[in-house]
Simulated assay, not measured.
Amino acid sequence: MLQQKIGEVMKVLRHKYLINFYQAIETTSRVYIILELAQGGDVLEWIQRYGACSEPLAGKWFSQLTLGIAYLHSKGIVHRLSAAGRDLKLENLLLDKRENVKISDFGFAKMVPSNQSVRNSPSYRQMNCFSHLSQTYCGSFAYACPEILLGLPYNPFLSDTWSMGVILYTLVVARLPFDDTNLKKLLKETQKEVTFPPNYAISQECKNLILQTLRQAPKRATILDIIKDPWVLKFQPEQPTHEIRLLEAMCQPPSTTNRHQSLEIST
C-alpha cells in the first residue's frame, strides 16, 4: 500500500532539475526507494567548503531551482510540507556531476482540495492556483515562513517561495538571513525587512528578488513572479515560456478553469 502511494506520486515527476525516482520496494517492515545518484553532494556542503557563491553561480543554481519548483507548483505539488527535516533547504538541493541542481526529498503526498476559502487568512492571494491553506507544521525553523512560526494556517506555495528566498540569500552571503537559535528572536527578525552585509558585492536586482520572496504572505512573490523576474531570466538558457504558460493557466479564475485536486507533500 505504501509502495503504491509513493510510486503514484513520484513516478509521474520527471524533470531535469528533480531527482528521478526509479522504484519503490516494500517489505513487511521497510520501504526501499531507489533514486537517481547525485555525485556532487549537496549545496550546503559546497557553501561550507567554498563560501558564498559568485552571483553567476548563484544565478545558475537558483534559476534551476526555480524551474524545478515551477514544475512542481504547476502540478499542484508543494515541497515544503514533508516530514521534519525534508523541507525545501540547501541540504535538499543536490548536485549532479556537472554541478546542476537536483531537488530531492519529496516525502509523501496526499490529495487536498484546491478551492478552499481563504479570504480571511493572512496568506490569502487572489490566485486560484495558490489558494490552499495547510496546518501541517514541520521542518526547519530557519527556512520557515512567519505564518508557520506563528502557528497560523498558511499557503504552502508561498511557504515554498519564502524558503527559496532564504536559499538565495544564503547562496550569495554564505549564512542564513535569520538567526534560528532563538525562536522569539527569529519571529521578530522575520517580521522585518532582511538586511545585507556591506562587504558582499550583490547586485540590486538580486537583492530585490530576495526582498520580494522574504515578505509577509499578502505581498510575497509566487513562483510565477519569480520565474518572470529579470534577474532569474538572465540566467535561464532559454525563455521559460512553457513553464510560464502552465502557471498562468492555473491562475485563471475558477470559472474559466476546471476544478482540480492538487498534490501536497506531507506525511
Rank of each mutant, 00 (worst) to 15 (best):
Q3V: 12
Q4M: 09
I6A: 10
G7Y: 07
E8N: 14
E8P: 00
E8K: 15
R14K: 15
H15C: 09
H15I: 11
K16V: 11
Y17T: 14
I19W: 00
N20W: 09
T27R: 08
S29I: 10
S29D: 14
R30T: 13
R30N: 11
R30G: 00
V31S: 03
Y32K: 05
Y32Q: 03
I33H: 00
I34D: 02
E36D: 07
E36Y: 05
Q39D: 09
G40K: 03
G40Q: 06
G41H: 04
V43A: 03
V43G: 01
L44W: 10
L44V: 00
W46L: 13
Q48Y: 05
G51W: 09
S54F: 10
A58M: 09
G59D: 08
W61Y: 15
F62E: 05
S63F: 10
L65V: 14
T66R: 02
T66H: 04
I69E: 02
Y71L: 01
A84K: 11
R86K: 14
L90S: 04
E91W: 10
E91F: 08
E91P: 04
L93Q: 06
R98S: 13
N100H: 15
K102G: 02
K102H: 04
D105V: 03
G107V: 07
G107E: 02
F108R: 06
F108V: 14
A109F: 08
